[in-house]
C-alpha cells in the first residue's frame, strides 16, 4: 500500500516537473518563435539566447501582489487558476512517453484525459464569473460554448480510432501503430480511408480546445481586453499561463499518440522517448506558427465551423469506418 502511494507521489512530482518545465520553456519558445516570425530578436537579454527569461518572468510574477477585485467572488476567484493548472498536470500521469516511460498506464487513459480537459472549461467559467468583470463574463461564456462544441467532434474522432484499435489505453493505442510510418493512424488504410481528414479535425479541435489562435476567443485582447483573466495578476495569471501551455503539450501528445504512432520511429527503428518528444515539439512549433500568422475568427464562425462542418464530417467518418471495419 505505502509503495503504491509513494509511486503515485513520485509520478505526480515528475508530472508537475515536466509540466512546469515545459510551460516555462514553451513561453520562451513561443516568444522567440514569434520574434523570428516578426523579424525581431525576441527575448535575448537574460542568459544565452534569453534562456533565463522564464526564470525572470517567474520571479516577477511570484513577487507581485495578488489583487482581488472588490466585489469578486473570492472563493471562485482563487480556485480558478488552480483548476486551470491541476487537471493539465494530472493528465500527464497517463501519457506514455515510450514503451516504459509512463507514470500510470490506465485502461481508460483516453477518457481520463478528456474528463480532465473538460475541467479546464470550468476554470475559465469560474475565473470570468468570479472576477466580476463584464469582459470576463463575456469571454468565459464564449470559451465555454467553444469548449462544448469542440469536444464533440474531437471525441467522435477518438471513438473512430478506439474502434479501430479496440482499446482505450493510450499505451495500446500507440503500440497498435508500431512499425514504420505506414502503420500510423494518419495514413489512410482500407478500413479507414478518411483518416487524414480526421487528423485535420482533431488538430483544429486541439487548437480550439487549448484556446489558441485563431480560436483564442476567450482572451481576444482586441475586444475583451484580456478575456477571462482580465482581473488576474501575479501568480494567478501565471497559473493560467502555465495551464495553457501544459494543455498545449497534452494536445500535442494526444495527437502524437492517436495519429502519429506515439514513440515509434517513422522507419520502424529504435522506438524511444526521443521520437515522441520530437513529434510533440514539431506539433507545438506548428501551433506557434499558426498563432502568429492568422487573425482571429469570430465566435459564430467558430461555432458554425464545429456544428456545421466538423461534426457532420467526423460522424460520417465514424459510420464509414464502422462499416468498413465490418467488411475488411
Amino acid at each position: 500500500m505505502s509503495l503504491t502511494v509513494l509511486n503515485a507521489i513520485i509520478a505526480v512530482v515528475i508530472a508537475i516537473g515536466f509540466a512546469a518545465l515545459n510551460a516555462a520553456y514553451l513561453v520562451w519558445a513561443e516568444r522567440r518563435g514569434a520574434g523570428r516570425i516578426q523579424r525581431r530578436p525576441g527575448p535575448n537579454v537574460n542568459g544565452p539566447f534569453g534562456l533565463l527569461q522564464p526564470l525572470a518572468d517567474g520571479c516577477k510574477l511570484m513577487t507581485k501582489q495578488l489583487v482581488i477585485p472588490g466585489g469578486a467572488d473570492k472563493a471562485l476567484f482563487m480556485v480558478a487558476p488552480v483548476l486551470a493548472m491541476a487537471p493539465a498536470i494530472m493528465s500527464f500521469v497517463t501519457i506514455p512517453f515510450s514503451n516504459v516511460v509512463v507514470a500510470k498506464s490506465m485502461d481508460v487513459g483516453v477518457l481520463m484525459i478528456f474528463a480532465f480537459a473538460s475541467l479546464g472549461g470550468m476554470s475559465i467559467l469560474f475565473a470570468g464569473w468570479g472576477s466580476r468583470n463584464k469582459y470576463g463574463v463575456m469571454a468565459s461564456v464564449r470559451a465555454v460554448s467553444q469548449a462544448i462544441s469542440y469536444e464533440v467532434p474531437m471525441l467522435i474522432t477518438v471513438i473512430t480510432i478506439v474502434m479501430m484499435t479496440g482499446s482505450m489505453n493510450l499505451h495500446d493505442l500507440a503500440v497498435a501503430q508500431s512499425g514504420g510510418f505506414w502503420h500510423w493512424n494518419v495514413i489512410p488504410s482500407l478500413s479507414s480511408p478518411l483518416m487524414p481528414v480526421s487528423f485535420l479535425i482533431f488538430f483544429i479541435c486541439s487548437l480550439a480546445e487549448t484556446n489558441r489562435a485563431p480560436f483564442d476567443l476567450g482572451e481576444a485582447e482586441s475586444e475583451l481586453v484580456a478575456g477571462f483573466h482580465t482581473e488576474y495578476g501575479s501568480m494567478g495569471f501565471g497559473l493560467f499561463f502555465m495551464g495553457e501551455y501544459a494543455n498545449i503539450v497534452i494536445g500535442a501528445s494526444l495527437i502524437t499518440i492517436l495519429f502519429l504512432g506515439g514513440w515509434g520511429c517513422p522507419f520502424g527503428l529504435f522506438p524511444s522517448v526521443f521520437w515522441f518528444l520530437l513529434k510533440i515539439y514539431i506539433l507545438i512549433a506548428t501551433f506557434i506558427w499558426i498563432r502568429w500568422t492568422f487573425p482571429r475568427t469570430t465566435i459564430y464562425g467558430l461555432l458554425n465551423l464545429s456544428w456545421k462542418i466538423l461534426i457532420p464530417i467526423s460522424l460520417f467518418n465514424l459510420l464509414l469506418t464502422a462499416g468498413l471495419l465490418k467488411v475488411f
Binding site: 514569434a34 523579424r39 489562435a213 483564442d216 492568422f294 487573425p295
Partner: peptide, 12 residues
C-alpha cells in the same frame, strides 16, 4: 489586422 487578432502584420 491587430484588431482582428493577427499580430504579425503590424511588425512588418
Amino acid at each position: 489586422v491587430m484588431d482582428l487578432g493577427g499580430f504579425t502584420p503590424l511588425m512588418y
